[in-house]
């Protein structure tokens, strides 16, 4: 069964039927937003059943659209949280990627600004590495990007998408060794992106992120995960009651190869490890349970088949 990431948008009336339907078909709800009279579901659903969901959702004014980034967590790295970069361009990019289903976290570096003086500390590096990929938003000058980028990429092992003011081909010549994605023409600007030309730039960013993550999925498919992150999320929701008391919009954030569980590590790590998935197999067998550098959350990294020799 191939699961496809989609967004369902529809009225609040009888939306629980859609949730039940997706779950009965073997899909997973990753995130549910209620906005006034509207409900937005980000879900992974079986490819063959999309038509069925569309048909049942139609009388409820429901709409199903493909969202390639559902189930990913992306770091949007901005050089500082000063007025020079906020709310445009950093928030514009983070918000636009979110529309395609990704969970984006904005990471404002403490001392990322400047050419010679720019730095990144170990906490920032570790937090970025906890994501599926990182979108770096740099400035308008070639000289600065060339000079400061080696410092900012040090120790980062997730794919990097580099955005900056100079055109894409110029960015490519500046960076050595190359990074995974480039988007030119998205540097520092101080106005809201609302014209069609600017929005198409934002689309370019999304396309580049999608392309990079697709390539990552292809690599991962060669050695599949022992359990799908969405399924593991469901199991945790089912077996650990305390997760229902967490007030975050996503108590469990789904990543491509893991989960961020927003429960304190000290209290819940051993409990999580011992939680049974299926006939004597525990979460600890299939995933590494690490403390996250983000607050006191727990980070689960699911091991691939080659390490565990089982797929649940």
């Amino acid at each position: 069964m191939i699961l496809v990431p989609v967004t369902y948008k529809g009225g609040i009336y009888r939306h629980d039927e859609i949730i039940d339907l997706i779950e009965d078909l073997g899909g997973y709800i990753i995130q549910k937003h209620m906005i006034a009279q509207e409900v937005v579901l980000q879900a992974l659903v079986p490819k063959d059943d999309i038509e069925l969901i569309r048909r049942i959702g139609k009388p409820l004014t429901g709409e199903v659209t493909p969202s390639p980034l559902v189930g990913t967590e992306i770091a949007v790295v901005t050089m500082s949280l000063e007025i020079h970069h906020l709310p445009h361009a950093s928030c514009d990019v983070a918000e636009y990627i979110r529309r395609f289903g990704a969970k984006t976290n904005m990471i404002g570096l403490a001392r990322g600004f400047g050419k010679r003086i720019s730095q990144m500390n170990d906490e920032e590096r570790d937090v970025i590495n906890e994501h599926d990929c990182a979108v770096y938003l740099l400035g308008d000058f070639e000289t600065c990007i060339k000079h400061k980028f080696p410092v900012l990429r040090r120790g980062i092992d997730v794919p990097i998408i580099l955005c900056g003011g100079p055109p894409t081909d110029v960015l490519k010549t500046l960076i050595d060794p190359p990074v995974d994605g480039y988007v030119g023409g998205v540097g520092r600007f101080m106005h809201r992106t609302k014209e069609s030309e600017e929005l198409s730039k934002m689309d370019e960013v999304v396309d580049e992120v999608t392309r990079v993550l697709d390539r990552k999925r292809e690599v991962m498919a060669k050695d599949p995960l022992s359990i799908s992150p969405a399924r593991l999320m469901d199991i945790i929701y089912e077996k650990i009651d305390e997760i229902h008391d967490v007030l975050s919009p996503t108590p469990i954030t789904v990543q491509m190869a893991g989960l961020r569980v927003k429960l304190p590590y000290d209290t819940f790590a051993s409990l999580l490890r011992k939680t049974e998935i299926d006939e004597g197999i525990t979460i600890g067998d299939l995933a590494d349970v690490h403390p996250s550098r983000m607050r006191d959350y727990i980070l689960l990294r699911i091991k691939p088949f080659s390490e565990t020799n089982m797929v649940v």
Binding site: D140, F141, E142, G165, P166, F189, M190, H191
Partner: peptide, 18 residues
């Protein structure tokens, strides 16, 4: 840098207007 200069022209314009 021509491209950088053009961006900064726009930035200055927007900021002074704001």
């Amino acid at each position: 840098e021509k491209a950088g200069g053009d961006y900064y022209r726009h930035i200055a314009d927007v900021v002074l207007l704001d």
